[in-house]
Structure formats: C-alpha cells, structure tokens
Simulated scan of single mutants.
Amino acid sequence: APLVYQTPSNKTVPIIYDSDQGPTVSVPLQEMFGEVVSPKIAGGKVPIRFELLSPARRPIQTTSDLANFWRTSYFEVAKEMRGRYPKHRWPEQPLEEKPGKSLKRFS
C-alpha cells in the first residue's frame, strides 16, 4: 500500500491507515482544486478518504467522493469559510482553479 498521496499541486502528503476509517489523507482544501475523481488504492478498490482542512489546518469536511463534494457541499463550506478566512481562495468554480496555496494573490 502506498505511504503517501501526491496532491494535484504536487505536494506529498502521508496516507494514514486506520482500521475503522480506512486510508485517510489530511490536506488543505485548496491543494485539492481540480481533483475531480477520488483516487483509489489497492488496485482501484479502496477509495482514499480526504480530510479537507481550513487555512488554520482544522478539518472542515471529510469525503471519499470528491466529485460529489465539489458539486454539492463545497459551496456551503466556501460560503462559511469566506467569512472566516477572507484572504484565502474560495472560488465559485473550484474545478477550474489552480491547486496550491490558500492565500489570494494581490497585485
């Protein structure tokens, strides 16, 4: 079984294996922009569970179905997080956003 997961922004994150929760990756939400399909391990049989983190590194959502998350609950999460973390990226089109740093770029 793999020990690490590589995010769409090429960041390497450890995979934590738990007998109750299954393989889990804790990663800032913005690192996952553009990842439409939930990655699976064990020959494509076991989905990785994602613990998506706020800019403060606190869990804000847990999912094994990223496609469904981006279509549904992301918008509620983003709405709440925009108020708490206004300097961070919470785009209306997260799948079109480049993955990576959380902070907005100011010109």
Rank of each mutant, 00 (worst) to 15 (best):
S26A: 15
F50G: 01
E80K: 06
K101W: 14
V77T: 07
R57H: 13
D18P: 12
S26P: 01
P91Q: 11
D18A: 06
E92K: 14
K101Q: 12
P47F: 08
G44K: 06
P59Q: 14
Q93T: 15
E92P: 05
R89M: 03
R105W: 09
D20G: 01
P99W: 04
V27Y: 06
E31L: 00
V77C: 00
E96R: 13
E97V: 14
K45S: 10
V27E: 02
T24F: 08
A78Y: 02
Q93G: 02
E97A: 12
F75Y: 12
S107C: 03
P55F: 04
S107K: 10
P2H: 07
P86K: 15
P99V: 07
I16P: 02
L66Y: 14
E35M: 09
T62G: 04
A1G: 05
W70A: 02
Y74H: 02
L53W: 05
A1E: 01
Q6D: 10
R105C: 01
T7M: 08
P99D: 07
D18Y: 02
E80T: 15
Q6L: 02
P47H: 11
L3Q: 10
K98Y: 14
P8V: 05
P28Y: 03
I15S: 03
P55Y: 09
K87C: 00
P8L: 09
M32H: 13
Q30A: 05
I41F: 12
K104L: 05
I16Y: 12
L103Q: 13
E80W: 00
E35A: 11
P39N: 03
R58D: 11
S54E: 08
F75H: 09
N68A: 01
E92N: 11
F33V: 10
E92C: 01
L3Y: 10
P23H: 03
F33C: 04
F75E: 03
S38K: 08
I15F: 06
Q6E: 13
F106H: 11
N68S: 07
G43Q: 06
E51T: 15
R105I: 01
S54A: 05
P91A: 01
V77P: 04
K104G: 04
G34E: 04
F33D: 05
P23I: 08
S64E: 13
S73F: 00
G22P: 11
P94I: 14
F33I: 11
L52Q: 10
F69S: 01
